[in-house]
Structure formats: structure tokens, C-alpha cells
Design a protein around this nucleic acid. Structure first.
Length: 320
DNA sequence: AAGACGAAAGTGGTTGA
DNA sequence: TCAACAACTTTCGTCTT
């Protein structure tokens, strides 16, 4: 069973060496780096069994458990009627109390989870996130509810924060701005919930890698594949020179793209890049300056600017 | 006129006493 | 808990293309 994805061609370079990154829900051309189809949403875990022969391993009854179902597809209740007969008075009382507690807890929690998971579903489909992220976000949210971390803040803001965290965890970062726009929640509010939840649940999140932003920004800005790979190259050099420590990864990615655009003759204004990336022109300029200094690109850029200038002159001559 | 540049003041978060 | 601090933003004037 050869997947049909192998038959597709890259619209940019015509190459057939495509890489279907299921975790990210992205299709990437291996020869030119073009992001082909970001909406190619993966279904995450494959739980069906297509191997011939012994399929008993994979046979299931019922739906797969999922954190995006509020009770993971299962219900739990403490004790049954018949249990109580085998217990003495004291134990029976204890059991009753437990049952009452569970009922109260679970109804409050379930109500919360139902709303939250609905919102989560809406958000992640709006943002075109793969189900693996929805799963992880659901899992984190469930934990947060169990530890009473949602109290005092809106369900929506916590969901947004949790989605942000899940994206970061899977190295498919979305900017806070994007999530803010999709959820209608203030950026600061999302950041607050995000920090609170990750701190309280001790979720380890590595600082995001600027490279993770390149393909998305580049495709919105309609940069060609050469520019993209040039930007990645610039990034890795900047990374090894430790230009990046303590700096916001988005600003670095934006600057690398800006520089790559200059070098490859695909000029975009700082404003364009600023709009897409959500960092200001000032920050792009600052990173830009730092990077071209440390990478000795100043001369090269001067040359290119001079060249484009002389080209304009030539064009003027042509007119007359 | 639009884009690029940079100074100055303001914002929100982190850190360390 | 508070102040110092770094990164980033906002705003604005100036220079360049």
C-alpha cells in the first residue's frame, strides 16, 4: 500500500521528494524546503491495524480513549449497590460519603471540561492544529482542572494558554498573537494563564527554536525556497555564535528572513515582516544589525544595495 | 512618498536581596 | 515584597531611496 502522497509533486521545484510531517500536519518538499500544505492535518495515532496476519494485537472494542472527550470515553463511579451489603456500618458510611464527594466533584469538573474541550476543539480547528496537539492540550487542561488551577480565571483563557503550551511542547509554535486572535482573548491574559499552568504543573518547555517559525512566516510572505533555506542557514550560524541567547526567537526568525530576502533579491519591507511575525520593525532592525555584523554580511548587503541601485539606473536609461 | 534608521520613554516579566 | 534589569514596544524625528 504505497501512499498517494508519494505521487505528489512540489509546485515550486517539481521535485517528488516530499516529506509528510504528520506531527506538524505539514507537507514539506525535501529538495527546496517549500511548505506545501499546512492544512494536511494528521490524525495522530493510528489505532487501526493494516498489517496482514495476526491482528489481534490491535483489535479494540469501543472508541479509543482520548483527552478530548471529557471523561476519556469512560465513566467511573465508586461502588455499586451490592457492594454495600458486605460492609459494616462504619465502612458503609464512609462509602456513602465517598460517593457523594465523587458525585459533586465530577459534576463540577465535567461541566467545566465539557465547555473547555468544546472551546479547545474550536480553537484548534481554527488554527489548523494537528490532533496530537489537541490531545496534549486536552490532557494538560484536564490536569489543571483536577488540581484546581482554573479557579479565578476564565475557562477560555486557560484553554488558550494550554494550547499555546501544547504547541510549544511539540515544536510547532504559534505566536501568542495568533492564539489571541483566534480565541479573542487578550495576549497578556493568555500569557498569564500559560505561565501559571506550566509552573504549577511543572511542565517543562524549552525555549522555542527560531527555525520553527521560518516556514510558516515565509509562506505567508511568499518567499521562494532559496530564501527560506538561506534564512535557515543564517539562523544556524547565528545560533552557533550565541547571538540568540536571551533574545526573542520570533524576532530572530523575522530578521533572518529579512536578511535572506535581501540577499536573495526577494525584498520585503520590514513592515511586511513585522505584520506577519508580530514583532515590531524596531526589533527586526536590532536583530538585523546584530546578525549582519557578527556574520560579516555587511559588505555583501552593501554590494547588493549598490547593485540594485545601478540596476534602477540602467532601467531609467532603457526608458529613454 | 515610502521605507529604513535610531533615540527615547514606556510596558510587563524575571531575578535577587 | 521591592527594586534593578533586560527585552521588547511605541512613538517620533531624520535620513535614504
Amino acid at each position: 500500500m504505497v501512499g498517494s502522497e508519494n505521487l505528489k509533486k512540489c509546485p515550486e521545484c517539481g521535485g517528488t521528494n516530499l516529506y509528510n510531517d504528520k506531527d506538524r500536519g505539514e507537507m514539506i518538499c525535501r529538495s527546496c524546503g517549500l511548505l506545501i500544505d499546512a492544512k494536511n492535518i494528521s490524525l495522530g495515532k493510528e489505532w487501526r491495524d493494516f498489517e496482514e496476519g495476526d491482528d489481534s494485537e490491535m483489535r479494540r472494542s469501543g472508541a479509543p480513549t482520548s483527552y478530548t472527550k471529557y471523561d476519556m470515553g469512560m465513566g467511573t463511579s465508586i461502588g455499586s449497590e451490592s457492594d454495600a451489603f458486605s460492609l459494616d456500618k462504619k465502612q458503609r458510611y464512609k462509602l456513602q460519603r465517598l460517593k457523594r464527594w465523587q458525585k459533586r466533584l465530577s459534576t463540577v469538573m465535567e461541566k467545566n471540561l465539557k465547555i473547555a474541550l468544546g472551546e479547545l476543539r474550536r480553537l484548534s480547528s481554527f488554527l489548523n492544529l494537528p490532533t496530537s496537539i489537541e490531545e496534549e492540550a486536552g490532557k494538560i487542561y484536564t490536569e489543571a482542572v483536577q488540581k484546581n488551577l482554573v479557579r479565578g480565571r476564565s475557562i477560555e483563557s486557560v484553554v488558550a494558554g494550554v494550547v499555546y503550551a501544547a504547541c510549544r511542547r511539540q515544536n510547532i509554535p504559534r505566536t501568542l498573537d495568533e492564539i489571541a486572535e483566534a480565541s479573542g482573548i487578550d495576549k497578556k491574559e493568555i500569557g498569564r494563564s500559560y505561565r501559571y499552568i506550566t509552573r504549577e504543573l511543572r511542565i517543562k518547555i524549552l525555549p522555542s527554536n527560531p527555525v520553527d517559525y521560518i516556514s510558516r512566516f515565509a509562506s505567508v510572505l511568499k518567499y521562494g525556497p532559496e530564501t527560506q533555506s538561506r534564512a535557515v542557514e543564517i539562523l544556524s550560524q547565528a545560533l552557533s555564535l550565541e547571538l540568540t541567547s536571551g533574545r526573542g526567537p520570533i524576532g530572530i526568525a523575522a530578521a533572518a528572513l529579512y536578511i535572506a530576502g535581501l540577499l536573495e533579491g526577494e525584498r520585503r519591507t520590514q513592515r511586511d515582516i513585522s505584520d506577519v511575525s508580530g514583532v515590531t520593525e524596531v526589533t527586526i532592525r536590532n536583530r538585523y544589525k546584530e546578525i549582519i555584523q557578527k556574520l560579516d554580511l555587511e559588505d555583501e548587503i552593501k554590494k547588493i544595495k549598490a547593485k540594485s541601485k545601478s540596476k534602477e539606473d540602467v532601467n531609467k536609461d532603457d526608458v529613454f
